[in-house]
């Protein structure tokens, strides 16, 4: 554990909580991609199956359980409690275009050809593209509320901090998880355009982030 890893995890947690509270308080999930949230719930589910097979630390177990609970609660808010506010018309990204290649790749490129490892690899690849339905939705509607933008900022920060964590671990421990690092770099690249928009529009603008 190092400071980059810890702050990355905290930013991830803050992002998930921001989104949950936004939907809970406004009683609306307008502007939120339900598809991205289902993909994230799937990411956590397939990655954290090791909760049943190996114990790493109390921190590790607690964080995994919290991520899982929050992910499923958010999906529940979007598709059940506040489903009337769900904008399925704008949430039109075809997720099968992500799931099929990601599933295929996790069978081809993994650390071990075992069910748990393949599912872990699937979760890593899927996480790197899971935000695309949300970014697609913002592009389609042309704007995002500032709170949605804050959510994306913290998710992006989490990614950037994990990159720093891997650089740190490589230098101090010689540790290098190729699958996680390559997918992580790809994932972080998706946020770059968003970071630019965030800093030029949300911080200077009127609260809403509009695309050019």
């Amino acid at each position: 554990m190092n400071i980059f890893r810890l702050s990355g995890d905290v930013c991830h947690l803050i992002a998930i909580i921001i989104l949950f509270l936004k939907i809970w308080r406004s009683k609306s999930c307008a502007g939120i991609s339900g598809k991205s949230q289902v993909l994230f719930a799937l990411v956590f589910t397939t990655r954290y199956l090791d909760l049943f097979t190996s114990y790493i630390s109390a921190y590790n177990t607690v964080m995994k359980v919290v991520y899982l609970l929050l992910a499923y609660s958010t999906v529940g808010l979007i598709f059940f409690r506040f489903r009337n506010s769900y904008d399925s018309e704008s949430d039109s990204f075809r997720v099968e275009f992500l799931l099929v290649p990601v599933a295929g790749l996790s069978f081809l490129e993994n650390y071990a050809f075992t069910p748990l490892e393949i599912l872990w690899t699937f979760s890593i690849y899927l996480e790197s593209v899971a935000i695309l339905p949300q970014l697609f939705m913002i592009t389609k509607t042309g704007e995002a509320e500032s709170i949605t933008a804050h959510y994306l900022l913290f998710l992006g920060l989490y990614r950037a901090l994990y990159l720093a964590n891997w650089l740190w671990r490589f230098h101090t421990e010689g540790f290098y998880d190729q699958i996680a690092v390559v997918s992580g770099v790809v994932q972080t690249i998706f946020y770059c355009d968003f970071f630019y928009l965030y800093f030029t529009r949300v911080l200077r603008g009127s609260g809403k982030m509009s695309l050019p």
Binding site: D9, D50, N60, Y111, A112, D177
Partner: peptide, 10 residues
């Protein structure tokens, strides 16, 4: 990364 793969990161 051969056997006993330990994924400690979240």
């Amino acid at each position: 990364h051969a056997l006993n793969i330990h994924h400690d990161e979240l």
